[in-house]
Design a protein around this nucleic acid. Structure first.
Lengths: 198, 198
DNA sequence: CTACATATTAGTACCAGGTTCTAAAGAACT
DNA sequence: AGTTCTTTAGAACCTGGTACTAATATGTAG
């Protein structure tokens, strides 16, 4: 068997069972353990423990990625149809486990929640957004999002909201949201209370 | 701190971060490593590697026994640096209670997670995104997000990923993501093991 | 206070499953 | 024969532990 063939086999074996050790592979491929290791290096395949770690982290991050949680961030100031401020502290469950950097959608969620909250309408929904993650946000940092309503159509129209998120003095995120303010289909089952806070 | 209290703390710490080593725990609990190990034994908590192995096996089993269409909120297909598919079912906790319409950031989160997952790099982070919520998503609907990598720079560059999310045949969301593929910023404070995956 | 029990710490030997490095032997072409 | 690629071997070292022994603290009942 040629080197190429063997490496193909190796890829296939590890692909078929990522939990295989080098020692087991020597039995199946009938070459020395050094050859197996050289092959893994050439193919960029990490060792068993690293493979398991990556799988574990991946599935763990997956689990963490969507909380069954409601509002992202505390809205501390709200002037309807004008502006709003929300505070959100990045905690362990919001970051990638290995490097402590916040997952983008939490930062987005805070801004999105605020953009929607600031629009004074029964239903406000994000129609589109243009966003930029200016710098990474890390575990423990406190994000302060400030929203400004830029333009408005009347009932049933659209509103534009700019949101800037800071950590201290530093801009970390900016977003331009277009939010629908629709007086639509109020199939409300029960009291319509004031503002829809995301 | 009593033994009971410490063991409760230990359970909490490992529950909060299963990837913690005994050595790190000694720092947080201010007891010797032997005490940590005795506590783990009494509590029946396996060692770090065993914990990771179990998580890896668990997720692997799930991926393997993939009934493909009844999977919820999961990445069901992933070709690194090429494409990926994720399925997410909108449940009660994801919608506005009044009208049953999904909160935008859940739809975004699905797309964002997928866009990041599809990029094969140690750290992949969303740099910016241009998104459009094409139509509202309702309670009970199943969102199928399909990601396509459009362009790539090498290591340390950017990649562009398009994500389209459908409910049935209907497009509900589209997003154009620019994802940083950054070669780890190694602010190593000591034991930096191998590779940091996202 | 003493005696015993429990809790904690320390230290050693050992393990799996590797990495990293050096070195040598085999094969293969030309 | 000389050069290069491939394969094998072996030793040192690494992490994150287990298993075991032994010494020291701390508490608690008699």
């Amino acid at each position: 068997m040629s080197k190429k063939e063997r490496q193909q086999q190796l890829l296939h074996l590890i692909g078929g069972n990522p939990f295989v050790t080098d020692r087991e592979l020597t039995r199946q491929l009938k070459v020395s353990i050094q050859t197996i290791r050289l092959d893994r290096m050439e193919l960029g395949i990490p060792e068993l423990r690293e493979r398991m770690k990556q799988m574990a982290e991946h599935s763990y991050d997956q689990v963490r990625s969507l909380p069954a949680d409601e509002v992202i961030g505390d809205i501390v100031d709200l002037q309807l149809d004008k502006s709003g401020i929300s505070i959100f502290e990045i905690r362990g469950e919001h970051v990638f486990s290995r490097n402590g950097i916040a997952r983008g959608h939490y930062v987005f969620a805070q801004a999105n929640s605020l953009a929607v909250a600031v629009i004074n309408d029964e239903i406000a929904l994000t129609a589109s957004a243009d966003i930029r993650f200016v710098r990474m946000v890390r575990l423990g940092e406190k994000c302060i999002a400030k929203a400004q309503v830029r333009s408005q159509a009347g009932r049933g129209g659209k509103a534009e909201v700019d949101v800037f998120t800071y950590v201290g003095e530093e801009l970390v995120f900016q977003g331009h949201f277009i939010v629908y303010r629709s007086a639509v289909e109020d199939n409300s089952e029960g009291g319509n209370r004031s503002v829809d806070r995301h």
